[in-house]
Amino acid sequence: MSSEIKVEHKAVVIPGQVLANGMDYLPGEETYRDGDAIRAKILGLANVSGRVMKVTALSGPYMPKVGDTIIGKVSDILMSGWRVQTGTPYSAMLNVRDATQRFVRKGEDLSKILEIGDYVVAKITNVTSQNLIDLTMKEPGLFRIRNGRIIQVAAQKVPRIIGKRGSMISLLKRYTGCKVVVGQNGSVLLDGAVEKEALATKVIRMIEELAHQSGLTEKIEAHLKSVVGEVPEAPAHSENRDNRDNRNSRAAPSRGFQRDQHVPADKAADKPAEKAPEAKDAEKPAASTEAPASQE
């Protein structure tokens, strides 16, 4: 029997749908071989470039991965750390030694450092086979959230919201002046002027909606321009603000760790020495281009 592709490239396929028949083709991501046929394992877009059949999922739960930066919510205080909700079926552990640089006495009230209900930007350091998750906040760009708003998007849309080498996120920041932190779990922090946060929210909803359209970045930029007008690239004041915040970042030392601010996604490459999240790669954890706000 001859081999044959059964779907168009980028067609919507549903679970079990045959992508190709025959041994000339190989099952790739989110597909499986069933006798002669290669079938989809999940709802998504077929990817039929070359011999390997793949499916890109269009919806579904976020799977925790080591190295991902996520936004989580402190749900409980334990003996030596916190339990953090991650937007997955699994809560994570944040140990006190991974939360703050300073020495914490035994028996100290941990709620002074992080309180139940607080949201944090944290990084996953370990995931077990049973999806037990460890977090850290002791890296640049990880902090306790004090201002702004958090919105939820589908985890599959996160790469679109970050954009190619962080292009989309830079646009958002440039035109709204908001600090934007995109967690890989789909939680997004927007922090800026109220009406600008609202604008950024709308634009992110737009990106979600149009996630798979061509020229998305251009469309979004055109939209932002039409709403707020031209905004020059890399405004100088944001640079200054970064620096300022970097230097005097801690008004209250007992609060979340903010020692070393990370650098803008689009500048990360210029400072290889800095241990910034790999912001240049859209698939990798997000980075915000502005310092975590510590303005009281």
Binding site: R160, A211, H212, Q213, G215, L216, T217
Partner: peptide, 12 residues
Amino acid sequence: AKANESTESKEE
């Protein structure tokens, strides 16, 4: 998603 899927998002 299908109608407008493009090379750009593929690269991304």
